[in-house]
Amino acid sequence: MATPTRQPDRAGERRTPYGSDPSQFGELYLPSGTPRGVVVVIHGGFWRSQYDHTLGSPLAASLSEQGWAAWNLEYRRVGNGGGNPATFDDIAAGIDKIADLGLDTTSTVVTLGHSAGGHLATWAASRGRFDSWQPDRVKVSHVVSQAGVLDLRQAYVDQLGGGAVENFLGHPPTDADDPLDSIRQVPLDIPVWCIHATADTNVPISQSQAYVDAMTKAGATAELHAVPGDHFVLIDPSSSAWADTLAHLDTLG
C-alpha cells in the first residue's frame, strides 16, 4: 500500500477529483503519523447547492489532528446538477475513490454526516445492495449521523427545509424511493451512532429516535446520543457535542 503524501499547503489537505464535474472532489486531511482509520465527512444543507464542503472543513481538520485520515467529500446538489440520482452517484463514487488514495480501507471506514449529510452517510452503508452502485469498492464499517434526515417520508410530511425532500427527489417520496431512504434500509449490518441536539428546530430529534428504534427492533446496533443545543452545535469543533463525537470515534479506531 502506498504511503499517503502530506501536502504543504494546509495540514495534510489534498484535493482530489473523483469525476469531471466541479463539485466532484474530496479534500484529504492526513495526520502526522499512520492514520487510525478513515472518516468520510459529508456536509449537510438540505442537499442544496448554496451549502458546500466548507461546512465540513473544520471537522476534517479536527479529525486529522486526532489521528484520522479525513476525506471531506463534496458532491452535486440541488441547483448545480445534483438531486436524485446524481447526488447518490456522487456519494458512492466519492467513497469508492478512497481506494485510490493509498489508505487502508480494509478496517475502519466511518461515514460521518450532518443533517442531509447524515442521510447520505447512512444511505452509503446500504449502497452495495443495489445494482446502480455496485461494486462498492470501499465498505463502510461504521456510521455517525449528526442530526440526520433519516426518514425521508416523515421529513416530507413535516416539510423540513421548506420542501427540501421533494426538491431533492424531484417528487414526493413513494415506495419507489425506498432504496434512497435510510430508515427503509433498516437493518444495516454495521453500527450506527446518532448524535442529535434536543433543541434542534431544523431536523427534530424524532428523526434520530425513530431510526434508532427501528434499528434496535430489527436486531441491529444503533444508539442515540442526545446533547443540549441547536442544529449547528454538532459541527462546531469547539463544542462539547463535537468532543463527544471524537470520544465515540476513539472507541472505533
Results as ranks from 00 to 15, higher is better:
42 I>A: 07
95 I>L: 13
157 V>N: 06
169 L>Q: 01
207 Q>R: 08
220 A>L: 01
139 K>L: 15
24 Q>C: 08
235 I>H: 12
59 L>P: 09
104 D>K: 06
204 P>N: 07
186 V>L: 04
99 A>T: 04
191 P>A: 03
178 D>F: 09
30 L>Q: 12
84 N>C: 10
210 A>Y: 07
64 S>C: 13
74 E>G: 09
145 S>W: 11
127 R>Y: 04
170 G>F: 09
23 S>N: 14
226 A>R: 08
164 A>L: 07
58 P>W: 13
70 A>S: 15
170 G>C: 04
27 E>G: 02
241 A>S: 15
151 D>K: 03
108 T>E: 08
118 G>D: 01
212 V>A: 00
203 V>K: 14
40 V>A: 14
77 R>P: 08
130 F>Q: 14
53 H>W: 10
200 D>R: 07
116 A>S: 15
242 W>R: 07
80 N>K: 06
58 P>H: 10
235 I>F: 11
127 R>D: 05
138 V>F: 12
70 A>E: 14
107 S>L: 07
177 D>P: 05
251 T>K: 14
148 G>C: 10
109 V>C: 09
39 V>W: 14
175 D>K: 11
117 G>Q: 05
73 L>D: 12
61 A>C: 08
222 A>L: 02
246 L>P: 06
113 G>L: 08
93 A>T: 11
57 S>I: 13
241 A>T: 12
166 E>Y: 01
228 P>Q: 06
168 F>G: 01
181 D>M: 04
145 S>C: 05
210 A>D: 15
207 Q>V: 10
74 E>N: 15
114 H>D: 12
5 T>H: 09
73 L>W: 13
21 D>Q: 12
82 G>K: 07
144 V>N: 03
62 S>G: 13
198 T>I: 14
79 G>C: 06
173 P>V: 02
193 W>G: 00
162 G>K: 03
12 G>Q: 07
195 I>F: 14
59 L>F: 12
81 G>A: 05
123 W>F: 10
119 H>Y: 02
63 L>E: 15
86 A>S: 10
179 P>C: 10
43 H>V: 03
236 D>N: 15
205 I>P: 03
220 A>F: 00
169 L>Y: 06
6 R>V: 06
234 L>M: 12
190 I>E: 02
167 N>G: 11
150 L>D: 05
36 R>C: 01
3 T>E: 14
152 L>A: 00
202 N>F: 03
22 P>L: 03
144 V>F: 15
71 W>H: 06
38 V>E: 10
155 A>E: 00
32 S>C: 00
184 R>A: 01
9 D>G: 00
133 W>G: 07
194 C>N: 13
110 V>F: 04
113 G>Y: 08
55 L>T: 03
224 L>S: 01
245 T>Y: 11
192 V>T: 05
224 L>R: 01
182 S>W: 02
208 S>N: 04
146 Q>I: 13
149 V>H: 04
241 A>V: 07
29 Y>H: 15
228 P>W: 08
49 S>P: 02
163 G>Q: 04
120 L>N: 03
199 A>Y: 02
206 S>P: 00
218 A>L: 02
89 D>M: 05
44 G>Q: 08
88 F>R: 07
87 T>C: 05
6 R>M: 09
249 L>R: 03
47 W>T: 05
